[in-house]
Design a protein around this nucleic acid. Structure first.
Lengths: 143, 143
DNA sequence: GATAATCCTCCAGTCACTGGAGCTTTTCGT
DNA sequence: ACGAAAAGCTCCAGTGACTGGAGGATTATC
């Protein structure tokens, strides 16, 4: 049967119990039915929704993004393109991040190959990372 | 001349004024000299340090990681080998992040690959996100 | 029917900022 | 040189996204 306690739901979704309650509090999931003794009881729809949330969050989607994806997902007639757009945007962000990190990787690797001369005084780690021109990264634009 | 007010420093580094004060408070940057009237005055060393912090944070380095890098950079006599070890550690960290993001990238791209069919009802994104088995993504590792 | 496990609510804390209130200092235009 | 405006100061409270504990009620199991 599909009646889960909050603990079951937690185990099935990987979302911690207090976090589930928090999600309910902020309206990310609906308040579920309660037992006589006031305990939450969930169905499989709620489990799916929670899994969706957990997965999307794990993938780094912003809370706002997944909120809008969730609201879209409940309206079966909503255009898929809208959801796709959110994913596309996130994809672009991820691409940007990968680019930055790859660049940083190069910098770090370069520092190592520089060899082992005595002290930090000559190491370029901090130098490279503090010199804006060195990296070509555009600050201010949130990733 | 190299004497910046906190506002100058903010403008030069892209770090907001309250954030600079916060960084001072948690000991990430040293308490700077003050004017007669108790206002902070910074030099270019502090600007570099702040740029380093901003850059490293933008890159997604954990606070602890950049603290350890910074602490090494201030001790000019620190053995280079130690720095190298830390750089290596960060290199591994960066590699790990790149790997994660690349996998995520693939997953996101995969979601979009179905093409743009009509409605959310058939939307692959929603489907993939609610069904864990669909994606083969290993949860638990933050992006 | 006892006892352990789980659940409830409420509240406080975390991290990394961010912003406002109320006041002082500095800078700038005239 | 002076007065307004801009920027600075401290302190404190709030944000987002949880996380965890206290103290007590409810379920599940033996």
């Amino acid at each position: 049967m599909s009646s889960y306690s909050i603990g079951d739901l937690s185990a099935q979704s990987g979302v911690k119990v207090p976090t589930i309650r928090y999600y309910e509090q902020i309206g990310l999931i609906a308040a579920p039915a309660r037992t006589e003794g006031n305990q939450r009881r969930y169905g499989s729809a709620e489990l799916n929704r929670l899994r969706f949330i957990a997965h999307a969050r794990d993938m780094g989607f912003a809370m706002d993004s997944l909120k809008s994806m969730l609201s879209l997902s409940t309206r079966k007639d909503a255009p898929c393109a809208k959801v796709d757009a959110i994913v596309e945007q996130h994809l672009a962000e991820v691409d940007q991040r990968i680019k930055q990190l790859t660049r940083l990787r190069g910098e770090l690797a370069g520092m190592l190959s520089g060899g082992h001369h005595g002290t930090v005084g000559e190491c370029r780690v901090v130098e490279v990372l503090s010199d804006h021109d060195h990296c070509g990264y555009e600050h201010g634009a949130a990733a």
